[in-house]
Design a protein around this nucleic acid. Structure first.
Lengths: 168, 168
DNA sequence: AGGGAAAGTTGTATTTGACAATCATCGATC
DNA sequence: GATCGATGATTGTCAAATACAACTTTCCCT
């Protein structure tokens, strides 16, 4: 068992380093490119956010920005918008509250839910985050010309909205 | 401290569920859409791969496919292509070998490196994986018309290649 | 022969994420 | 107006990915 399957040999050099366009197997694998690029995008963003107490966060900054712009928003609305599950969001919000960026208030008339509110410091951090993400959008996607950038935005938004409709 | 910053109130309904287009704060946040969509894409792929011993793998299937099509390929070449770091890839390959999908052979003349080879079972799994990923590409991106799909492929490939050039 | 680079591995810590189960509250119905 | 189902959220637990640093082995070049 564990015999090695026969297949045609590869060139010697390609074994050491794959040429960027020697990914023929993956050529039609859109998901591969999406994931590889997004992975780098996230790491880049993390690096830019380093030290900002919302770093390392995929969902942290989205939560913060949404709370900043939608005072009183519910946790479930955020987890839905970010396509994450609720338990993760719950812990994440607990953390954000612990570091003093947001507040959770039980709303009168709906005591199950908690309204989320930004604190003064949270608001300041939000603005910093916005500045950073704007800079990243500009720089990370700088290789793309205007048209490609707007294409990408339009297409990913379309996918995003379609996903959310599917979940509704 | 922890005072709540003043801001304009949101509509009552938006606090419960954000309308898909009520993400004005994030409108120009391409990275948000990229990450959200890719996150769903990965989960969808995981679900499709369930039970296939390479499931839950972001890098596993790429490694497998590359080894299948490039017999003798080096681990470093794979980690470079997938934009991951080497330690992760090392452990991942150890796992793939443990379950009998690949073999690692010390190559004569270069005893530092290990050539990676697919096993018969690994080859079979590869073909299954290819079938699944092709199906996913078709179905997941079905909302997009032909043009958008090719745009997305072209743009993400451009980003990917640019990233790899930057690392070289 | 020796120093530096390259290929991999191991150690460790941080995160994330999913899923199930639970608690509290609301609302609707009988 | 009491109960049952639905809704909002939290907790517990577990599996996995990922990064970064340190270390070993081997190769290459002078």
């Amino acid at each position: 068992m564990n015999e090695v399957a026969k297949s045609s040999p590869s060139s010697e050099t390609s074994l050491r380093r794959l040429a960027p366009d020697d990914l023929d197997v993956l050529e039609n694998l859109l998901s591969f490119y999406m994931r590889a690029v997004t992975h780098t995008l996230s790491r880049d963003l993390d690096a830019r956010l380093a030290g900002l107490e919302v770093a390392k966060g995929t969902g942290k900054i989205t939560a913060l920005l949404l709370i900043d712009s939608h005072p009183g928003i519910r946790a479930s609305a955020i987890s839905e918008a970010t396509l994450r599950d609720r338990p993760s969001m719950s812990r994440l919000l607990t953390h954000l509250e612990a570091v003093g960026l947001i507040e959770q208030r039980v709303e009168p008339g709906e005591r199950r839910a908690r309204g989320l509110y930004i604190t003064a410091r949270g608001h300041a951090v939000s603005q910093e985050v916005r500045k950073i993400t704007r800079a990243q959008s500009t720089e990370f996607f700088a290789v793309l010309d205007e048209d490609d950038q707007s294409h990408l935005m339009r297409i990913t938004r379309k996918l995003y909205h379609h996903i959310r409709e599917g979940l509704a």
